[in-house]
């Protein structure tokens, strides 16, 4: 069953010269219960996409598209109706837990806050529920930690608290934006395992936003690869890692130290740099860096097209006429 469908989404931020086209016409959908990973480099628009789903794009604007969540187009809702979805039906966790948590409010109060707002629980009921949620995210000694302040907690513990807050109103969708990027690997492994458990026990749908393909390989069901505001490839996780089609995806995969031979000292790289989002190149945005480009690539932007194995790719190498 489809939980979310995004069509032609465009998000723009004010820029010095021209608007920054952070997200420039992307479409994807999330099926109930799956983990869908959005991957790409800094500035590709993956975080802006996540925030747009909550309509949190200040000072930018959603310039085009539709976001249909549980049957409603979120872009047509009033701000008040949107508030009833934000935090209640869609929860979100970020990389920067210290910035997201209030430093002078006890953990338990912060976890219970959404319950008091969305569910109208009393202070006491909210506290009891907060302790239950902290136990759910496997925070050691939840009764004591509920009385603690954020600075008393480690990074991993704070991310557990963030998850407890995000899950407090039993959302259908959890957006996790680089949830483990700031954490050490052994703690990252714990948090990712917790996410996998919670997904099962709460039948959550997760949009996992990350730059780390290792995290994607072990946690996602399907993957969307973004480049310069566009979705360039989408595939089931195994398909993507074994038969990536877009030259950008292949370059991205080759550049990870874990792939290839450990004996090879030099890592394969992509030439050049990511384009300026206020002035992306004409045609395929990847063409200036692409080693396989040919005549149409610098003229027209390739459209997403279906490929075998439930994949989609936006690249002229796979144009039907070319194959035929």
């Amino acid at each position: 069953m489809q939980l979310l469908e995004v069509r032609g989404l465009k998000v723009q931020y004010p820029g010095a010269v021209a608007p920054v086209r952070a997200v420039d016409g992307i479409s994807f959908s999330l099926q109930q219960g799956e983990t869908y990973a959005l991957v790409g480099e800094s500035g590709c628009g993956k975080s802006a996409t996540g925030l747009a789903l909550l309509r949190l794009v200040d000072p930018g604007r959603i310039a085009a598209g539709s976001i249909v969540f549980e049957g409603n187009d979120l872009l047509g809702l009033s701000e008040e109706a949107m508030r009833r979805i934000r935090g209640a039906r869609i929860g979100m966790v970020f990389q920067e837990t210290s910035a997201a948590l209030n430093p002078v409010m006890r953990i338990g109060t912060q976890v219970g806050e959404a319950l008091r707002i969305h569910r109208g629980l009393s202070r006491k009921e909210a506290h009891t529920e907060a302790v239950r949620l902290l136990r759910l995210v496997a925070l050691a000694d939840p009764e004591r930690q509920a009385r603690a302040y954020p600075h008393e907690l480690s990074g991993g513990m704070k991310q557990r608290v963030m998850l407890a807050i995000a899950l407090s109103c039993s959302p259908a969708l959890l957006i996790a934006d680089e949830p483990t990027t700031a954490l050490d690997v052994t703690i990252q492994a714990q948090i990712l395992a917790l996410l996998r458990e919670l997904r099962e026990s709460l039948s959550l749908t997760i949009l996992l936003i990350t730059h780390d393909l290792g995290v994607v390989a072990e946690n996602a069901d399907r993957v969307g690869v973004m480049y310069a505001g566009r979705l360039v490839e989408e595939a089931p996780v195994a398909q993507l890692f074994e038969h990536a089609e877009h030259p950008y995806t292949r370059g991205l995969l080759r550049a990870i130290p874990a792939s290839g031979s450990a004996k090879e000292r030099w890592l394969p790289t992509l030439p050049g740099v990511v384009p300026d989002a206020s002035n992306p190149p004409a045609g395929c945005r990847f063409h200036p860096r692409c080693t396989e480009r040919f005549e149409p690539c610098d003229r027209d932007e390739p459209e997403m097209q279906d490929r075998p194995g439930d994949s989609r790719v936006a690249c002229y190498l796979y144009r039907k006429e070319r194959v035929g």
Binding site: V185, T186, Q188, A189, Q190, L192, A193, R196, D212, L213, G214, V215, A217, E218, N219, V237, A238, L240, F241, E242, L253, I256, A258, S259
Partner: peptide, 12 residues
């Protein structure tokens, strides 16, 4: 350390 092999890892 995450690998690039798709699939669920063992418990941490």
């Amino acid at each position: 350390t995450p690998s690039v092999r798709p699939g669920r890892p063992q418990a941490p």
